[in-house]
Write a protein that binds this DNA or RNA. Sequence first.
DNA 1: GTCAAACCTTACCGAAAGGTACAATTAATT
DNA 2: AATTAATTGTACCTTTCGGTAAGGTTTGAC
Lengths: 200, 200
Amino acid sequence: MSSGRKKLFDENTALNAAMDVFWQKGYVGASLTDLTKRMGINKPSMYSAFGNKEALFVKATQCYIDTKMKPLISLLFEEKVTLKQRLKNHMMSIVAMQCDTSDAKGCYLALCQSELVSGDIPEQAEQLLKEADAMPIQVYTELFNSDAEAIKLGLNNNAQANALSLYTILKGTASMARSGIDKSELEYSIDSILVGIGVQ
Amino acid sequence: MSSGRKKLFDENTALNAAMDVFWQKGYVGASLTDLTKRMGINKPSMYSAFGNKEALFVKATQCYIDTKMKPLISLLFEEKVTLKQRLKNHMMSIVAMQCDTSDAKGCYLALCQSELVSGDIPEQAEQLLKEADAMPIQVYTELFNSDAEAIKLGLNNNAQANALSLYTILKGTASMARSGIDKSELEYSIDSILVGIGVQ
DNA sequence: GTCAAACCTTACCGAAAGGTACAATTAATT
DNA sequence: AATTAATTGTACCTTTCGGTAAGGTTTGAC
């Protein structure tokens, strides 16, 4: 079948490196020079392996969704944990990630999302970002509509609106984290919003 | 004293046009071609009038602070209005501005702030943006510490934390507005957070 | 060992970025 | 009217962007 020289770099490792760069600098801010330097490869290698910058971004973002977002979502559906505790686990884990400055990262989606506004992101990437961005609202709505404990609290009556409240907090903390606010200072806000929507 | 040809454009008009462009596209996204086209002048005219792109941005941002932000803040200190109503007026006015898509604008500060992370904004502009960004927290804290009604409600006990909660909402709604969510859907979230921090 | 396929490196392309030199144009001052 | 100082338009500079052409290099298959 195939012959020829073997690839000298691991595609997955390179993709993770690319994800980090996009995470730090956004789509436009991450230049090919930045990307390939951190990926440890040259531009032609990158183009032959991933296609172009947009395709690389799409794959990196998909990687982010699978390895970073989904584990956070699964916290909402753990068994033998109260709804309030699940929500707190979920929110606090997100905040912890948002506030993690170990690699000078901001918030992946928040950073890229603002580029959606200025129209600097190509179509395919835009689609994926919008889907990823809308994911939490759908998940929260589903949670409030299906979870027994949530229904008992009546959260299903305002499922969409309550989902929006959670999401608002999530976006707010992302923005705050980018401003360098400490994780502990955000815990209070999370408690407040949970009280506000009636999660006791 | 001075003689020579008169300026054919109004500096203030041009500055407002520049503010609009930065508002829509952020600092990096707004190219000199975009800017000068909308300002109705040529590049050398812009450079002689404002210095360079950064100086133009600083002046445009200062203009934004004075003409857009400060009127919103003054709503918090109107006389003969209850604290709850003042807060709602303030928040809803902000949300209305954030959701105003008449000129395809996003949120000025939110858009530029993400550029702070990627390090694409020069120093002087960065300083001003950070100051403007921190302004609401200071104002809210001052309100909770000095307003008679707030003190009666005990909001001064957690002044800083409560200020942070309001600010979180503000940032959250900004992000949501950028995603195209309707104004009316955000009203509920605002009520929730006001309940959460104990404003009845 | 030979051939061929896949890789890596270098060097380059056109476009667009921020910024500027220079000369033509204009109007207030004398 | 002549002078002079400021603004204006054109045309250009350097750098960096995303992307690629061409050729040398390494590995597998026969």
